[in-house]
Computed example of a mutant assay.
Amino acid sequence: MSLKDKLQEDWKAALKNKDSFRANVISMARAAVLQAEKVDGSKLDDEGVIAVLSKEVKQRRDSILEFEKGNRQDLVEQAKKEIEILLEYLPQQLSKEELTEIVKSAVNEVNATSIKEMGKVMAAIMPKVKGRADGKLVNEIVKQILQ
């Protein structure tokens, strides 16, 4: 079953179970996928759907920071619940330790010695962790290792 089909089936199940919050989150995810397909003019495969869902998770994580600044704990909790639901459709996320190992091997691979070579390191890492790690976290770990 493709990821799009799984989203469709889970959306139907959430509606049947009268779980409106889950149904709304899945519906927003499906809408984002459909919008991406409309823009590209082609059907997305599972990898494309994962990219769209990763973007949705990133937007919500960024929103959490803004909600915390605005002291809106209710919206922070809602965004966290939405992220939990969306993460069910993404590949298993890498731990910070696993990411650190990947970063160290990439640094050795490109022979990076200073923060000026961060772009090379990021270019080597991102294809390996696509959909399995937040780019902001990867960026922080690369900065720590290169300093």
Score class of each variant (00 low, 15 high):
Val138Asp: 00
Leu65Ser: 14
Lys18Asn: 11
Val39Arg: 11
Val142Gln: 00
Met122Leu: 10
Lys120Phe: 01
Lys69Pro: 02
Asn71Ser: 15
Asp134His: 03
Asn71Arg: 15
Gln144His: 10
Glu84Trp: 09
Ala13Ile: 02
Ile125His: 01
Ile115Cys: 03
Glu68Pro: 08
Thr100Phe: 08
Leu75Tyr: 11
Glu66Gln: 12
Arg132Gly: 04
Arg61Pro: 04
Asn17His: 09
Lys136Leu: 11
Lys96His: 09
Glu101Phe: 07
Leu3Thr: 03
Met122Val: 02
Val25Cys: 03
Gly119Trp: 02
Ala123Met: 13
Ile102Cys: 04
Asn71Ile: 09
Met126Asp: 04
Arg60Lys: 15
Glu37Cys: 09
Asp134Ser: 05
Leu146Phe: 06
Val110Met: 07
Val76Tyr: 01
Val57Gly: 00
Ser2Trp: 06
Ala13Met: 09
Glu9Cys: 05
Leu15Trp: 04
Asp19Phe: 04
Gln144Val: 06
Gly41Pro: 07
Ala36Asp: 15
Phe67His: 10
Ser54Asn: 14
Gly135Phe: 03
Ile85Thr: 12
Val33Gln: 08
Asp134Lys: 05
Phe67Trp: 06
Glu82His: 10
Ala123Leu: 12
Glu98Val: 08
Val103Tyr: 01
Glu117Pro: 00
Gly135Pro: 06
Gln147Met: 14
Ala123Ser: 15
Ala32His: 04
Val25Trp: 01
Val33Trp: 03
Pro127Gly: 02
Gln144Met: 04
Leu3Trp: 00
Met1Tyr: 09
Leu15Cys: 11
Leu99Tyr: 03
Met122Phe: 07
Ile115Met: 11
Gln59Gly: 15
Val57Gln: 00
Leu15Ala: 02
Asn17Lys: 15
Ala32Arg: 05
Glu77Lys: 09
Glu47His: 08
Arg61Trp: 05
Ala14Leu: 07
Asn17Leu: 13
Lys12Phe: 12
Ala112Asn: 00
Leu87Asp: 09
Lys12Gln: 15
Ala32Phe: 01
Tyr89Arg: 06
Arg22Gln: 06
Glu101Thr: 13
Glu117Tyr: 03
Gly131Ser: 04
Leu7Gln: 10
Lys43Thr: 11
Ala29Gln: 00
Ser2Tyr: 07
Gly70Lys: 14
Glu97Met: 08
Glu9Phe: 12
Ser63Tyr: 12
Gln73Glu: 15
Lys55Pro: 01
Gly119Ser: 08
Ser54Met: 11
Lys81Gln: 15
Gln92Phe: 03
Lys143Cys: 03
Ala23Asn: 06
Ile115Ala: 06
Ile141Phe: 03
Gln92Val: 13
Ile141Lys: 00
Pro127Val: 01
Ile115Asn: 07
Lys12His: 12
Thr113Gly: 13
Ile145Tyr: 02
Ile141Gly: 00
Ala133Glu: 01
Val39Asp: 09
Val39Thr: 13
Ala133Phe: 01
Asn71His: 13
Glu84Ile: 07
Leu86Trp: 05
Met122Asn: 02
Ile85Glu: 13
Glu109Thr: 07
Gln92Cys: 03
Met122Arg: 01
Arg61Asn: 13
Ser105Leu: 10
Leu90Glu: 08
Ala133Gln: 00
Pro127Cys: 03
Ser42Cys: 10
Leu65Asp: 14
Glu98His: 11
Lys136Trp: 07
Trp11Arg: 11
Gly119Asn: 11
Lys4Met: 06
Arg60Gly: 07
